[in-house]
């Protein structure tokens, strides 16, 4: 048995530590996402000197489509990820479930640079029929980070 007095100190300490760890974890994810966005911003400036920051509205338009020219069956990101990015998606051809795109529903989204690049490398040709610009990638992440 833990003495009552000790328990009074122990419990709040453990609770505080748990909350602290949660905040630190979320902050780590936020920092990783910011670093990815910073990278795209630098790249966007290099691609177009007129670049003046990312836009969640443009990201939303990119997400919802519809687009022409894709080599896959999907004409919008929303075709698989659903128009509500907080919902679980479904691969149009295979039926496989896809974890939500919205950061509020899936905090691990856009925290692994290699993974993010892999998906853009594949899905931009699949949906748009071309590679995405750095500005488009940043717009897309900015939109979904706010969802």
């Amino acid at each position: 048995m833990i003495p009552h007095a000790l328990r009074r100190i122990l419990l709040p300490t453990v609770a505080l530590l748990a909350v602290g760890a949660g905040v630190a974890y979320a902050a780590g994810e936020g920092a990783a996402r910011s670093a990815i966005l910073d990278g795209y911003a630098a790249q966007a400036k290099a691609e177009a000197p007129s670049f003046a920051g990312f836009s969640a509205d443009r990201g939303r338009a990119l997400y919802l489509g519809p687009h022409a020219g894709g080599k896959g069956d999907a004409n919008a990101c929303a075709a698989c990820h659903t128009p509500n990015p907080a919902a679980t998606g479904r691969h149009a051809k295979t039926g496989r479930a896809i974890e939500p795109m919205a950061v509020s529903a899936n905090p691990r989204r856009f925290t692994d640079r290699a993974e993010v690049e892999k998906r853009f490398d594949r899905d931009c040709p699949n949906v748009l029929g071309r590679a995405c610009t750095a500005a488009e990638k940043g717009d897309f992440i900015t939109y979904l980070a706010g969802q």
């Binding site: 080599k71 051809k93 892999k118």
Partner: peptide, 11 residues
């Protein structure tokens, strides 16, 4: 790169 009509490119 053309995995049954879609890109599934990997490193």
């Amino acid at each position: 790169n053309d995995h049954f009509g879609e890109s599934a490119a990997l490193a």
